[in-house]
Amino acid sequence: MLKLLGAVLIILTTSWIGFQLATEFRMRPRQIQELRSSLALLKTEIDYGTRPLAEACDRIAEAAGSSLSQLFQKFSRNLRTLDGKSTYECLRLAIESEWRKTAMGKEEKGIILKLCQVLGGSNRSDQLHHLEIAAENLLMEEQKARVEQEKYEKMIKTFGILSGVLLVILMY
């Protein structure tokens, strides 16, 4: 009886791990898409609203999903409170502390960091141009992430369950 309970526990645990890993694969393209729409919003704020960066980030944080909302909130907080630091430094510190909470990978991080180097540092048309480039690059990453999702999501889920079953069989 105890053995059976143990076996069920093992299978449940490995399946849970498998599902968690699969969630990462599922969330990544979705979050990249959200990030793209946040950048589109930023573009509007810069183009028509001509709002200061911190204020624009606040508004985006309100509209975005939870993990991205935290990132943009942190952007805004750093821009307002980190006295004497450059724009890039404020944004970089926010990314370093918040990126881990998202499902996004280092490619997207690289694109955003590159954007942060120029954000707030040039005239309007230049800003819009850089935002467009970042959005295009993110779209490419999103497509890649979707392919990966299709490839690996189911596989990892099944792998989780099966590895549990294998462990149980070996133990019996």
Binding site: I46, A54, G120, G121, N123
Partner: peptide, 23 residues
Amino acid sequence: KEDCLNLLNLISNHSLYTMDEEL
């Protein structure tokens, strides 16, 4: 260069694009 860039960031409140007219 870094100092100047940083100074410009701070003057523009991290938003140089709001200052087209001033520039």
